[in-house]
Every structure is written in structure tokens, then in C-alpha cells.
Amino acid sequence: MVMEDREEAMREADEKAMPTRRAVLQAALGTAAVATLLSSLYVGAGLIPRVTKTPENEPPQEGDILVYATGAKMNQPILTSDLAEGGPFQLAFPMDPKTKVIRNKEPKNTLLVLKQPPGSYDAKVAAHAAQGVVCYSAICTHLGCTVSLWDAAQKLMRCPCHGALYDPRQDRVVSGPAPQALAQLPIRLEGAQIVVAGAFLGPVGAQV
């Protein structure tokens, strides 16, 4: 009799404690879930890599000299006398003249430089050109390929990836999928060398 009473009492106590127990467990589970979510977000943020700035991946600085990005004279200064008037253009990187660091670790620093008759530019482009030499970002604003083809017949620049055509004289997109014109980089001449005279005049790289 005594045993049964005790069992009965225990069962009653158990049932009374049930809601509390459930609430405690639910609270524990909830806390654990939130803690897991927050910590995984914190750890997961590490998936977006840190970018370390070095002289090699800095954007073109005023006073940088343009050097050949490709070809036999790679990494040597481009001389205006080397550029044929009327094209084709040369691909270039900016180089710090003091440290001789070439800023080629950032693909967006790829530039194209060309010489046209000084009278052929419209006023906006001519303002930042020097004696017919003009410099643009070579990164197509469509999907970030390098604009590397020269259309000799039309004297236009063509991106090999999806065929965007750019006009160097008016700084505009002639045809193709590119959403914006190439960003012009102001330059000046120091002797025969081409020197960066300021920051890009527009956004650089794929405009997405």
C-alpha cells in the first residue's frame, strides 16, 4: 500500500514538473540554435577574403609612368615616339617611377594607350589627352575581359569576349553589350614618357 502511494505521488509530481521541464528544454534548444547560427555566421564571414593592399595592386597614382604590359618590351616605359598615329593601341601598366614597382597585380590596372591625330578627339576626351596620346582602362565594362583587339578599318577598340566596340575619340560604346564607356585616365607627357596625371574619370572594371 505504501509503495503504491509513493509511486502515485511520484507520477503526479512528474506530471506537474512536465511543463517546466519542457520549457527548460525548449529554451536550451533555442539558445543553442541561436548561438550556433550566430557563431557560424561569424566564422562564415571568413569566406569573404581579406584584401591586403600592396604597391603592386594599388590603382594608378599621379606621377606613375606607363610601361608595356605585353610584348618584347614588356615592363619598359612606353615612348610616344613608339606609338603609331592612328593605332593600334598598346596595353600598359602604371609603374612607380621611384620604386620601379609595376602595379600589375591588380588586373583592373590594365590600361590601353594610343595616339590619334590631336584634332580627332572631342573636347571632353581631348581635355585629358596629351598631344594626341590618350589612355583608357583596358577592362571591358561588360564582363571584365581585356579590350585587346584593334579594329584597324574603323579605328575602334574591340573586346574579344562578347564583341563590345569602343570609340577612343569620343569615349563611348559604339555597339555590343558593354553598359558604359571605358574610363579615361588623364595623362601628361614628360619628354617621350607618358605620365599619369590623375585618377580614372569613371568606374573601372565590369559594371555589374
Binding site: A69, T70, L91, T146, C159, P160
Partner: peptide
């Protein structure tokens, strides 16, 4: 890779 892009 080079700064030039081929016609891909």
C-alpha cells in the same frame, strides 16, 4: 595568363 585576353 597575360594582360591580353584571347578570343575565348
Amino acid at each position: 595568363p597575360t594582360p591580353q585576353t584571347p578570343a575565348v
